[in-house]
Nucleic acid binder design. Sequence first.
DNA 1: TTTGCAGCGAC
RNA 2: GUUGUCGCUGCAAA
Length: 277
Amino acid sequence: MIKALTERQNMRDAYQQVVRNKGAGGVDHMKVDDLLSHLTDTWAITKSFLEEGKYTPQPIKGVEIPKSNGKTRLLGIPTVQDRLIQQAMCQVLNPIFEAEFQTHSYGFRPNKSAHQAVIQALANINDGYQDIVDIDLKSFFDEVDHALLLELIHAKVKCPQFLLLLKRYLRAPIQINGKLIRRRKGVPQGGPLSPLLSNILLNELDKELEKRGHRYVRYADDFSIYLKSKKAAKRTGNSIFLFLKHKLKLPINKEKSGIRRPHNVSYAQKWCSGGRS
DNA sequence: TTTGCAGCGAC
RNA sequence: GUUGUCGCUGCAAA
């Protein structure tokens, strides 16, 4: 596994992906081949550190940005080198877990869009599932349980070096105005791996919902379950609340969660107007 | 058919 | 200062 990670082609792809984004956050505009040859020695060192489990990620930079609702969100931005390594990790993990993911999860996945999620939501309503349980996970990214996540990945990936590296990325301290702060839970919002990790954890929720035969739609941490009566919706909502709290150790924002009817499907309206339809 | 640039949206 | 994944649109070039 760690070998696949450090393969030259995988690193090349990871580099291109990192550089493709925006101003490339501190990467100078070297050509890929230049960089790779320039990295021959630097990268060899990094590579051996990765393979021997000696690599320690640098702290992530904490940046507060304003959200649309007036509050702020804390980003955790890894260094360019760590973004590159995480991207490479993402590329080897993605195909493994993509095979596991359920069809009604739409966030952060290749060939899946918010628009498709809306179509599915409307289809559920059209089929008579008109009582909708809407659950809002409280600052989901910041609450992810490390042990649980590592356990889920261990089930599919046995390579100890890879798991150690991943653990170190999860535990990397965050630096806010020069102060280093330890992190005991959560995935940094800003790391290339984070969206995939969030799906890996919430895939357990998907599997539970599938097992119970529910109609549902999930887009990242935002999801709804579609039932045929208010009573069933209430019961399911409570049950899933307990599942999330105990099995996945995720707190729920009770004020923003609840049961509603299709005419105020807020997110569908948002997606319809924004994402067209 | 494909690639490069720019922008928009979701979380 | 501002990161990330995914999706879409537009333009340009062969």
